[in-house]
Amino acid sequence: MADTNPIRQFEIHPILPMEVNGIDLSFTNSSYFMAVAVVGVTLLMWLATTKRALVPSRGQSVAEMLYEFVAGMIRSTAGTEGLRFFPFVFTLFMFILTVNMLGMMHYFPAPGMHGFTVTSHIIVTFALSMLVMAIVVGYGVWKNGFKFLKLFVPSGVPLPLYIIVTPIEVISFLSRPLSLSVRLFANMLAGHILLKVFASFIVMMGTAGVLGFLGATLPLFMVVALTALEFLVAFLQAYVFAILTCIYLNDALHPGH
């Protein structure tokens, strides 16, 4: 009987065990999928831009569409000035999108032949969001210097209220990486568990006689519908992550609100 444990898919297995100074640095299936995503995106962009034609080929128009999409997203949230962050936002968006999409494959040419969703681990999404925050704070302080702290002191508030407002603003700022990472992680985790639970209903009912076999078509339809929804969520969450990155980067560019 097929494995119906909905959590098993998130297990991390070392592929290339490695240990440096007692720290486990194994190359795991998670690392493998990240590497595949990076190589895949690089190949796509490289192949799409080798033959730069005025009338784009299919690959080139995909690359152009992605470029336009991300550039438009940055322009609409952070203005033209925000385009200096284009390489970062584009990389982030493409990485999350590819990793999410790779996670939608049940079988994958990886050790063990099963798929894995890198973004279903909160440490990965948290590292990504901390990277965003590090850039926001680093660039904000470098560009605006002391004025970056204006982010925590909104204008037009009576003086005594700053005792309350400033801590609230600080907490709100500190909660950004958490909410950014939790959102992506929770979406991917919940979606994949849901898919697996409904898929295991098919197996359980299918092995329970004729009536169960007929009844198993219901969760089958559900799984098909959920798979479509999951593709939407995989794209949408990459988009949301990127657009919130743009919004936060806008704060680094213009801290005065």
Partner: peptide, 8 residues
């Protein structure tokens, strides 16, 4: 997630 993160 925004609300949860603030409280946390």
């Amino acid at each position: 997630s925004d609300f949860f993160a603030g409280v946390l």
